[in-house]
Simulated scan of single mutants.
Amino acid sequence: MSLLSQLRLLPRPFWVLVGATFVNRFGVFVVPFLALFITRNGHTTAQAGLAVAAYSVGGFAAAWIGGWMADRLGRNVTMAVSALAGAVCMLAMSQAVDWRTLALLSFITGAINEAGSPASAALVQDLVPPEHRVIAYAVQRFAVNLAWSLGPATAGFLAEYSFFWLFAVDAATSAFFGIIAWVCLPRGRRTAREHAGWGHAWQSIKSNHAFLALFAACICTAWIFRQTNTTFPLHFERNGLPLHDCGLVLALNGVMICLFELPLAVSLRAWPVRQVLALGYVLMGISFLIFLVSGSLTAFVFMMVVFTLGEMSAFSRQQAYSASLAPEDMRGRYVGFLSLAWCTGNTASSALGMALYDQHPGLLWGINAALGLAAALLILSTRKISSYEL
């Protein structure tokens, strides 16, 4: 079946979600430049790292609350409340100066913004049958990364003029997404009150060994991925390169995904999912070793190419693989629980990674490579338990 034929099989509400997600993700201006915003206000790199880590810590609360809300209240309600409240938080952050205030607001914003993520992923699982989920997640990532290819470049130019506009645009696009989710998207599958608690979900999760291995692998990859939003721009600046070039190199990631991930998803559809995931994780990790050789603009571009090849190999399959391991009535909580892995990796990466970068950047690049290898081994160490071949 051709790519176009597979795209036509995806339902209309899915495309509404994709369009709204594009607008929302285009406006994710603050997170990539939050560390720079804080350091330019006269704070240290370590303090900036703690404030950025607070956003990830907020994601821990979001995973529990968002997963439960998605299953109990409905997908669209959860996404709408999260996005609209997150817009208010972004505007509040724009007025803060002290790093401790920013850290507190960053925690609250992370808890609210990320609460909608389990609902979005669960809604895709509700709308799209298993055999089309790799393509569906690739389409969703196409939208996210098309936005990412345009957003950071725009944000880089705005940051050189005024950081306030980063917060204002971020808030406006979040509000737009919240309105569309409330008005145009379905509630999706809802779970009865007596079965919607985390106790039922935990009994299932703790016996799902393939899912737990994926959880551990996601902690490793979250650490690696977070470095592109924290130490990557700092390393770029410390090598004497202009900020607008940093935005363009970050945008290269999105451009490559928009051009190549969908065709790659179709061409590799018959390949064993765990092997492709493992390859992707290894490429993401070893890409940072390039900085041991050079800090030139060419090195940053080459690093981003290798990193993106790994990301394209892993991430849409990772989402579909995770979906195949989750019971239908626990989709929101399974996604929420997996979000905890990303929160753990993101938090450690923001706080420890930036502090380590300040002292031993070469050691940090080596740790990234080792974590990529560890994630690959975790995935390869488990046997497939789902009847669905990605």
Rank of each mutant, 00 (worst) to 15 (best):
A143H: 13
G110I: 04
W165R: 05
A122K: 10
P118G: 12
L158Y: 03
A138V: 07
G151R: 06
F177P: 08
A138E: 09
S149L: 14
W165N: 11
A147Q: 11
V134E: 14
A138L: 05
A119I: 13
L166N: 05
F157Y: 13
V124N: 06
E131R: 14
A122R: 12
E114T: 15
A147L: 08
G151S: 10
F176A: 13
A138K: 07
S174V: 00
A175Q: 07
T109W: 02
Y137W: 11
L158N: 09
P129S: 07
F176C: 08
A155D: 11
A115Q: 05
A159R: 01
Q125T: 15
G116V: 05
P129A: 06
F176D: 00
A122D: 13
A172Q: 00
Q125K: 13
S117T: 15
A119Y: 06
A155V: 12
P152G: 11
Q140W: 05
A172T: 03
A136R: 04
T173Q: 07
A111P: 07
A175T: 12
T173H: 04
L146K: 02
E114L: 10
V139W: 06
F176W: 08
D170Q: 08
A122L: 12
L150V: 15
G110A: 10
Y137A: 13
E131Q: 14
N113M: 10
T173G: 05
A136N: 03
I179E: 01
A111L: 02
G156V: 03
S117A: 14
F164G: 00
P118W: 07
S120Q: 15
V139L: 10
G116W: 04
A172E: 00
A159L: 14
F142C: 02
G178D: 02
V124L: 14
A155K: 06
A155N: 08
F142Q: 01
A155Y: 07
A168N: 01
F142T: 12
T109Q: 10
D126G: 13
T154R: 05
L166H: 06
